[in-house]
Design a protein around this nucleic acid. Structure first.
Lengths: 147, 147
DNA sequence: TTAAATTATCTTGAATTCTAAATAAATTAT
DNA sequence: ATAATTTATTTAGAATTCAAGATAATTTAA
């Protein structure tokens, strides 16, 4: 394990962090204009694209502790964008389910949202995006090593 | 602007987010073992590698609001890892300056820290890292578009 | 079956971050 | 020179997140 190799990895970590933060900061500002915060939007996207979710699964998918899920789901329920639905088979479980209002919200907002993200990526060519996707996929699988 | 292109950008955004979070989650756990939180560590790294910083500049470099800088700098000052130093030329300005204790801390911790990050990147070949660095650099420059 | 262990959600309190306003110093314009 | 604007830091209060514990339901094992 040469020092050069370590330096390259460090540099990648820095560049990865900057790229993510730069893009994400812009996406977050965009989401604010919809009247939601990033976590709320992530939950809505998840329910819209993947269907009803047991509360617990939401935590695993968007990286949120169980106490925080209760908080975010409460807020979205107050806004009428989702509702809690009891699981008939296991009474410990509650599903979050998108409402009609929630569905309309995502359908209103998502096309432009996607276009804006495309704009944020416009510095990259098609091939560069392709390469980045292939490479970054491998990093996304990192197992947790320091628990 | 084809829909395929937008989809590719969306996919890259998702993969970028997952990669960053996977790596970052591990790095954050590592930092916790040093007794600091990620923001505190970022400030210490900045001061160690880039020298004294006016408080305001810290915000720009690690993406933190001015109110939060006061909070983090207070905590690091309490821990004796940095001190505030008045700017002689402009009395509005306060510098954060690393202390000897802070310097020792980083010097103790950094070599292993870097090695652990290298381990997290070990799924990628040298060439893949090189490509990722080149491509991600372009994204890191994204200007804020929705202020 | 009953007890023990596990799982899902919620509650509580602390930590961290943000926004907006307050304060203080410097700069600009009249 | 004085007033108005800008810049840097801090304060105060709200929002968000987490960790740990509480509650309730389910499953496992004796």
């Amino acid at each position: 394990m040469s020092s050069e190799q370590v330096n390259q990895s460090l540099k990648l970590f820095i560049v990865l962090s900057r790229a993510y933060r730069a893009v994400n900061e812009n996406v977050n500002k965009l989401i604010q204009t919809y009247g939601l915060n990033p976590t709320e939007f992530a939950v809505m996207e998840l329910l819209y694209h993947k269907g009803d979710q047991p509360l617990q699964q939401i935590g695993g998918k968007i990286l949120l502790a169980s106490g925080s899920i209760t908080y975010v789901v409460d807020k979205l329920e107050q806004k009428g964008l989702l509702k809690r639905v009891a699981c008939p088979k296991d009474r410990r479980v509650t599903y979050a389910q998108i409402t009609e209002k929630g569905k309309s919200f995502i359908e209103d907002v998502f096309p432009d949202h996607a276009k804006q993200i495309d704009t944020l990526m416009s510095e990259l060519s098609k091939n560069e995006k392709e390469s980045a996707i292939t490479i970054l996929k491998k990093l996304g699988l990192s197992q947790s090593s320091f628990e």
